[in-house]
Write a protein that binds this DNA or RNA. Structure first.
Length: 474
RNA sequence: GUCCCCAUCGUCUAGUCGGCCUAGGACACCGGCCUCUCACGCCGGCAACAGGGGUUCGAAUCCCCUUGGGGACGCCA
């Protein structure tokens, strides 16, 4: 039995988007599940659009997700000689031909077909051309696609698909500049690299019959195909920037955890009963492309956030601290200017879906906030809160041991002394020291904000209330 | 336009080759409990088999049509 060999073959013309990441994951999982090899191949035949930056972004994305490859990366630009060799072979065997048609003629032919309600196709003008080649014209090499019959293949996801050869035209194998076209390079590579299972996006389903025809002309083995449905945006359209982040590294930068992304991606189009939580080991043990759904699915950030929250709650503290530190850097916050990161992480890990959220929710521990949140101040820093704030200022000022128990005792003492419910005391205090109405428990918040900042912010809050009172009286 | 494909709650999906489905789970949403706020957690609720024909004792599950949606038609990948 031949070993399974799958591949991920991105073209370095943009970042790694979530759809690509998912097909990479599926290919990786399939190889792992069946003890095979996962090959990485960079399809950089488009010399104009390929960039090193894009390639790096793709590699970074794969590494972040932990999708390691056993072979590669192979580069198609380094295999041009091989493509030309095969092209020559096809030409010699009469399975391909030179085409001297101008771009204008080809466009005109397509346009004519379209206006007649037909599929735009090359008309095979040069296929049966006789006589000398036109002088001064560099030809492209076209494949002699079979004229009749049909191509049938059993897709592991979609089942049997049949396409009539009459629907296909003679596609270009080698362009005028000598570079191979996608469909040709893919076929040569998949064959040379002994790929057994081609797992790719559904948008390639129409390329498959063409590729199979070329493979057969080459006398090469036809691999198993598995086309994965595309990921859509909330409006049903192809996922794009309009729908939010699509770049995998952007999710990384926004403080998502790779295990959450992997879990989410795996569940998009695939499931195992009612299970929702899967780690890579579990997936490796259960995943099969044959179980992937046929219908396209919509990328739901809410569910991704929920999963991320789940993993944040379970993550190792030191790891979260390092990640939070990166978020601080991005926000220009100095972790040295506040409580230990470990304490911040503990206080916020259950109330921050992402590390970016955590950073935003803890900024007031490390820097002064510009202003009180308007709504919160209006509701809690009222005229009536003046005596509360004053009493808090006194009692907290006396706390020497700035730890949670004595801090909580102080706050409780104020509420009892003024015969006020805890909420009437804690909320004004909370807004005063954090600028907002939602923070961790008040004793935790006090401890994290620190003595000095608490007392100075309490003073500011009292000034704010006083100013507000004056404004109300005038 | 032509070809290919798809169709269960708003979203991700379960639904073994038809009966156990008065269609299950999760996210989101709504309500409750907990409670100093938020969050977590727990409890409860709302919500779907696109429509129409068949086949069958019986269909979300099989077949056909309609409708809707997507993809592909490049000297891009």
């Amino acid at each position: 039995m031949t070993t399974v060999r799958t591949r991920f073959a991105p073209s370095p013309t943009g970042y790694l988007h979530v759809g690509g990441a998912r097909t990479a994951l599926f290919s990786w999982l399939y190889a792992r599940r069946f003890g095979g090899k996962f090959v990485l191949r960079v399809e950089d035949t488009d010399l104009e659009r390929s960039t090193e930056a894009a390639e790096q972004a793709i590699l970074d994305g794969l590494q972040w997700l932990g999708l390691d490859y056993d072979e590669g990366p192979y580069y198609q630009t380094q295999r041009f000689e091989r493509y030309r060799e095969i092209a020559r072979q096809l030409l010699d065997e009469g399975l391909a031909y030179h085409c001297y048609c101008s771009q204008e003629r080809v466009d005109a032919v397509r346009e004519a077909a379209r206006s007649q309600g037909l599929k735009p196709r090359y008309d095979g003008h040069c296929r049966d051309r006789h006589g000398a080649a036109p002088a001064g014209v560099t030809p492209v090499l076209r494949f002699k696609n079979p004229l009749d019959g049909e191509v049938v293949f059993d897709d592991q996801v979609f089942g049997r698909i049949a396409v009539a050869n009459s629907e296909l035209d003679d596609l270009v194998l080698i362009r005028r500049n000598g570079a191979p076209m996608y469909n040709f390079a893919v076929v040569v590579d998949d064959s040379d690299m002994r790929i057994t299972h081609v797992i790719r996006g559904e948008d390639h389903i129409n390329n498959t019959p063409r590729q199979i025809n070329i493979l057969q002309a080459l006398g090469a083995h036809v691999p198993q195909y598995a086309h994965v449905p595309l990921i859509r945006g909330g409006d049903g359209k192809k996922l794009s920037k309009r729908h939010g982040a699509v770049s995998i590294t952007q999710y990384r930068d926004e403080g998502f955890l790779p295990e959450a992304m992997l879990n989410y991606l795996a569940r998009l189009g695939w499931s195992h009963g009612d299970e929702e939580i899967f780690d890579l080991d579990r997936l490796t043990q259960l995943f099969d492309v044959a179980d992937v759904n046929r219908a396209p699915s919509v990328f739901d950030q809410d569910k991704l956030r929920w999963l991320n929250q789940h993993y944040v709650k379970a993550a190792d503290s030191e790891r979260l601290q390092a990640l939070l530190s990166e978020q601080f850097d991005a926000l220009g916050l100095d972790a040295a200017n506040g409580p230990p990161l470990a304490e911040t992480v503990e206080a916020l890990r259950e109330r921050a879906p992402t590390l970016a959220d955590m950073a935003h929710a803890s900024d007031y521990f490390y820097s002064e906030f510009d202003a009180f949140d308007e709504k919160s101040a209006k509701k809690h820093l009222t005229v009536g809160s003046a005596p509360v704030l004053q009493r808090l200022q006194e009692c907290l000022g006396k706390v020497e041991n700035w730890q949670r128990p004595p801090l909580e005792a102080a706050v409780t003492q104020v509420s009892e002394a003024l015969s006020l419910k805890m909420g009437k005391v804690a909320q004004p205090l909370r807004v005063a020291i954090s600028g907002r109405a939602a923070t961790p428990p008040i004793d935790v918040t006090l401890a994290l904000v620190g003595r000095e900042r608490t007392l100075s912010r309490l003073s500011k809050a009292q000034e704010y209330v006083a100013a507000r009172t004056a404004g109300a009286e005038s």
